[in-house]
Amino acid sequence: MDSILIQILNGLDKGAAYALIALGLTLVFGTLGIVNFAHGAIFMLGAFCAVTFRKLLTLSVKVKDESVTMFAAYKDEPYLKIWFGDTGEAIIDYAVPLSILIAIPFMVLVGYAMERGLIRHFYKRAHADQILVTFGLAIVVQELIKASFGANPIPQAAPDIVAGSANVGLWFGLGESLVYPWWRLIYLCFSGVMIFAVFSFLQFTTYGMVVRAGMRDRETVGLLGINIQRRFTIVFAIAAVVAGTAGVMYTPILPPDYHMGMDFLVLSFVVVVVGGMGSLGGAVTAGFLLGIVQSFASMNEVKSIIPGIDQIIIYLVAVVILLTLPRGLMGRAGVMDD
């Protein structure tokens, strides 16, 4: 029983990452009609925002430790600690959550620049061209990150206070054996909040309403005198923010390296297609669904029955869904129909 619950949590966790990237992907596809293969790179850029922020915070100076007389007398002292004492140390401790603050403006900037600089010229081109050019962009971004941060994963610690595991079992009266890392729970809640925020933005604000109208019929909205292009650009920036902050929050779970974006992108693409191109709800549902399915398939009990199933289950599910449901789980009619 416990192991099943753990697997569900694991699945939700993994699914949350897929869902957040897939949400951005399908948002961009629904509004601009662009198949963006560089979205994984945005996720990765977000993660490296956290890395950079921590590096900035821990800029150090060598300080002589008077109490030590032997070799290690010099040690690195971050400026922050020297200037602010304990407060400074606390800020460093909270580097990951705090880096969201710089990640958001940075991601808006990246999204805006990408849309205006490159994507804009590809609205009318074939999907194959869009895939290829964004794929090229993803390679470029990836290589730039590799050149400046190196090829190895850079581990990022979560704040100390949430470093351990939460006793999830006790909360629900299920016994003490059900424990789960705090940070993963926080990540899960964060994803929930992000998804909720995006949906309420689209559903409950006038701005979002116009965007939704534009997704349905861009021309008519344009004829009403609304600059729908501008709004779509902003939607692109929002998608970048969603992916970027997801990347920031994911760093304590998976140490970021330069190809993490690509690794997630392929799966997220499968998620988007399974959910139905252009359907936001579909992307989120499919993300969580595939995450849970994958974590169940990686249980030892399942693996002993069907060896290797954990490796292929996502693709297997995707194949079955694509062959039985032509538009994916929740695809709308008229979007990318064959």
Binding site: V273, Q311, I312, V319, M336
Partner: peptide, 18 residues
């Protein structure tokens, strides 16, 4: 279309993982 691309990708990744 893109569904074909994803299907072939899925099969190739399955072969790779297996």
């Amino acid at each position: 279309g893109i569904y074909f691309s994803i299907l072939t990708l899925a099969f190739a990744q399955m072969s790779y993982n297996l």
